[in-house]
Design a protein around this nucleic acid. Sequence first.
RNA 1: GCCCGGGUGGUGAAAUUGGUAGACAUACCAGCUUGAGGGGCUGGCGCCCGCAAGGGUGUGCAAGUUCGAAUCUUGUCCCGGGCACCA
Length: 924
Amino acid sequence: MDYAIDLIRDIEKKWHAKWTEMQLYKVVEDTSRPKYYVLDMFPYPSGSGLHVGHPLGYVASDIFSRYKRLRGFNVLHPMGFDAFGLPAEQYAIETGQHPAETTKKNIAYFREQLMRMGFSYDWTREVKTSDPKFYKWTQWIFMQLFKCWYNPYTNKAEYLNSLIAILEQEGSTKLFILDKCATSISADDWKQLSEKEQQQFLMQFRLAYLAYADVWWCEVLGTVLANDEVKDGVSERGGHPVEKIKMRQWFLRITNYAERLLEGLERVDFSDSMKEMQRNWIGKSEGALVNFSLANGDGSIQIFTTRPDTIFGASFMVLAPEHHLVEKITTKDQKIDVELYVSYVKSRSERDRISEVKKVSGQFTGAFAINPFSGKQIPIYIAEYVLAGYGTGAIMAVPSNDDRDRAFAEKYDIEIIEVVDQGAYPNAEREDKVGKIINSDFLNGLEVKNAIQKIITEIENKSIGKRKINFRLRDAGYSRQRYWGEPFPVYYKDEIPYLLDEKDLPVILPEVETYKPSGAGKSPLSSLTEWVNLPDGTTRETDTMPGYAGSSWYFYRYMDVDNTEAFASTEKIKYWKDVDMYIGGTEHAVGHLLYSRMWNKFLYDLNLVEVDEPYKKLVNQGMIQGFSKIVYRVSGTNLFVTKGEKHKYEVTELRVDIKLVDGDELDIEKFKMWRNDFADAEFILEDGKFICGSELEKMSKSKHNVVNPDEVIDTYGADCFRIYEMFLGPIDAGKPWDTKGITGVYGFLRKLWRLFVDENGDLKITNDKATAVELKILHKTLKKASEDIERLSFNTAVSAFMICVNELGAAMCYKQEILEKFLITVAPFAPFITDELWQKMGNSGSIHTAVWPEYNPEYLVENSFNYPVSINGKARANIELPIDMPIDEIERQVMALESVLKWTEGKTPKKVIIVKGKIVNVVV
RNA sequence: GCCCGGGUGGUGAAAUUGGUAGACAUACCAGCUUGAGGGGCUGGCGCCCGCAAGGGUGUGCAAGUUCGAAUCUUGUCCCGGGCACCA
């Protein structure tokens, strides 16, 4: 019987049923075995199903889980769904279908696809973030964040009573000095405050707090937009104008964990690039806060600088256009221009603002400040390159040592004072912190490093500022004016937020009539007056939580998925502890991974979890890209033009579903049926064909380039698909999807099958003793496969198996002694075939609980080795030497060889270079 | 723009610690096998010269370190990912 798709389907079906019946992958806590937790980043269940990019990481984690099981570990390998999110909501707005319905349908499809691929998940532990049983605990953790502050003395999160005790005893003076509090009040002051004032005061400490922040607002759509939904300053849908408006929202005080998030990176096994990305995101910089007095004597402006040493060169100041002092300091003459500039900046995204390097822009406010050291009057500008959210939202501009300040000064004709002589560092950039200070009074002659220390001391002596460590990291926005997310367990009384009682959890997401935002950009929930207004006259929070809320802690829920008393029990957390191997995409480097690390540290501070870093090892899978197909529409018409003729027209590009395209040729009939508005489309062809353009990019539904794995599995089976995805290349490399090489993998599986099954479908296994050659082939493969799987190099492991099958095939070997061990090692890659055969071969039990065979080095011993020797990198010859020859003997051999070949023309070698016992070169 | 990766045959790639570059596949070419094929087998396959043996050259480009560089250093070009409300 040949290994063909009918047979494969039978085997897959049979073993699926058997796995479910046996509950083979159900895992229970077992203290007698070491635990191992292999976690996948759970998917967002989109409408188009899994695409071929998802399984890349899932196949890898499954292979690794199966491998660890064979190695005797008790492996937790769960799967779930990140089910709240914007796409389901948008779909609901368009079609009126409840997001819960579409999400449920999508999850069912995803689960079915994941099962088809033969993953060894314990499905009894599945989580869904949109399930009230799950989000009850998301809400619960939020409540703890609200109830806690970050105690700078103990350096951890604590409940507010420890803060209140401090305030009652000594007021906030010390906390103010520590920069943890905006105002300094005495204990008596605190006691005098009304309930409302006290609550407002406490808000500046809570780890979940309310504040005002910018959001993108689109008047025409009547909704708040995500950055992703804003393209080129207009809404992506409809192209309507957008602007930033202030809105009161929830935030998580992640900045309080900045130092610990940075420090924790030292203790985890992430790639260097991943750590680097997180470090940059946190963006720690040391510098100083300095106050610049206004020239009119009316107050001062505080700036943050990392280069206080260049203060003598500060010849102007720049405020962020949103800075709260802009309105106050602007003079009458400049008022109109300043307002115009501010409204221009409102339409600009942060990225656009800081990306602009060719042309800086800004506006003079008419006001002046005094440089506290040079005493000069300097003009105050506003400019988009200064962001309100970074530092203090204001800078002292030093054209001599900052490129943008330089460009700005040149454009607006402002004085440039050179304050650092970098002559001694010919390769130094303007912004590098090296050189000797000049033109700076008492700093003259100092190296930059020393000057920074001296000037900060001087700034502190003059009481005009202080040393400051600044982070680029900002507190995380935690409100969304959306429907499809977790409701907050919060109500308002007299504008002040309070928590609902824990016994009222979960706060169930109520049904709504429409998923469109209700007036003024509020969440759809705000239209539910009955739900919003509570009987006692208080009102509910109507925003919902963001997508990352559930994903910040979901990995704990897998440990104890049905617990109704806690997010997970203490015993189970003690056993599973942390994630040993976490696999997912780099796109989560700074979002999810930073948030969940913070949540984990918070839970750790409250003694609710075992470790303060949740992920021991992180592996990033690359992104599989797809070819998008593009048709060209003559602008403003329903006429489409083939690629070869498009240069004759003014065209707009349109991505079409890749299913409508064969090779590069568009199927016109299918295209007409694809969307109603194309039904009467007309076409300009070349050679009777309509040829599409093509572009390689990230697979996404909106680009219509998603390749679904179902088709591949239908044709070749799940094992072939799994192995092919691994064979494609290293898991951390991104690559375009194509199935060109899949026949090679299919051929490998077929050859593997034929090693022990004949044409009639009968086993042809014997108990004959294996030969030395066969044992060597086997043990070479065992060694290579073990090493490769340990280092997650699955592509080379697959190659090793292919070589083994080729070599065994040539030896016509189908001896049980060999085959058994070989099959166990292939099992993580090809679970269906091997389990089937395992039973047929007369082994009781499942191959998935077998024991991984160790290789025996004795079979691999070579008794001699060949190695090339070269003389001064020129002549070459092979020298054959026994494997265990001592090095001095090797040197003698080489000299003998040389005298024979006369390479050295009678000279003795000066140096014999030996690497790992092998001669690699001889120098004469 | 900033941050992080990556450039090796027609293609996907391998080379684990600086030590014989191109394993393993695929595509292609030639041959054998088959009534037929998404079948099986054998051989060839970086580029240049050569019937061959062999020689030269070769890891985006340009330099450098080294007896020796795909690998380390510097510069440069190109491609991918992220950039705070996509998840």
